[in-house]
Amino acid sequence: MIEKLAEQLVNLTVKQVNELATLLKKKYGIEPSTSIKVDPPLSQKEETQTHEKEEKSIFNIILKSSGNSKLSVVKLVKEITGKGLKESKDLVDNAPSVLKESVNKKEAEDFKNKFEEIGAEVELK
């Protein structure tokens, strides 16, 4: 019975829907809701913001500046990245630069702390 009723409701014309609304209002005091909330699809920007609100577990380590102790920073970059001395120096000289990508949260925070201890500015993204 309910399925038949649902099928009949779905197949009503606009005129019949208006008549049903009038009948429900007059006879039973039921008023149909005139406001229907439809959430628009998320834009790419909103989607990105939504994902940022969730706690991240993978980070990129970005050197913002080397601070006063450039040589120590170059050595640490060399140690962390496994690159040669010249490549490490180039990364430091061209800051901001990505030092390491796709690092788990704990490792990224450890690296950040090491850099901050020697006066460098690092960002986790």
Rank of each mutant, 00 (worst) to 15 (best):
N60S: 15
T50K: 11
L20M: 11
E7G: 07
H51E: 15
K15N: 12
K86T: 14
E121L: 12
T48E: 14
A21N: 05
I118H: 01
V14D: 15
K56S: 12
A21T: 10
N18C: 06
Q8A: 15
V14T: 14
T13R: 07
E47T: 12
K112E: 10
S72N: 15
P40N: 07
I61P: 00
Q16F: 04
V98R: 05
E107M: 08
L5D: 07
T34N: 14
E116R: 07
V92Y: 01
E79G: 02
G67R: 01
K78A: 08
K105P: 03
L20A: 13
E19N: 07
L42G: 02
G29A: 06
A21D: 06
S69V: 07
V103I: 12
K125G: 09
K100E: 12
I58A: 09
D110Y: 05
K86C: 03
I61E: 00
K83F: 10
F115K: 01
N94I: 07
G84C: 07
I30F: 11
L12Y: 08
K56W: 04
V92K: 01
K75M: 08
L63I: 05
K83N: 12
K125T: 14
N18M: 11
E47I: 05
L42P: 00
S88F: 01
K37G: 01
P40S: 10
K75N: 12
V73D: 00
G119L: 02
K64Q: 13
V77L: 03
M1Y: 09
Q44I: 14
L124N: 02
S102Y: 07
S57W: 06
K106F: 06
I58Q: 11
P96V: 06
E101A: 12
E19V: 07
L85T: 14
L71I: 13
T81N: 03
L76M: 09
K114G: 02
S97E: 13
E121P: 02
S33Q: 10
K78S: 11
S72F: 05
D110H: 05
I118Q: 03
A95G: 05
Q44D: 14
V103N: 06
K125N: 13
K15T: 14
L12W: 07
P41H: 04
I80F: 02
L5H: 10
N113G: 04
V17Y: 09
P32H: 04
A95E: 11
E109M: 09
A95Q: 06
K53H: 09
E54I: 15
E79I: 03
V74D: 01
K53P: 01
E123V: 09
E52A: 06
K100F: 05
Q16A: 13
Q49E: 14
K114V: 02
L91K: 02
L99T: 00
D110E: 13
K78N: 06
N18V: 09
Q44G: 03
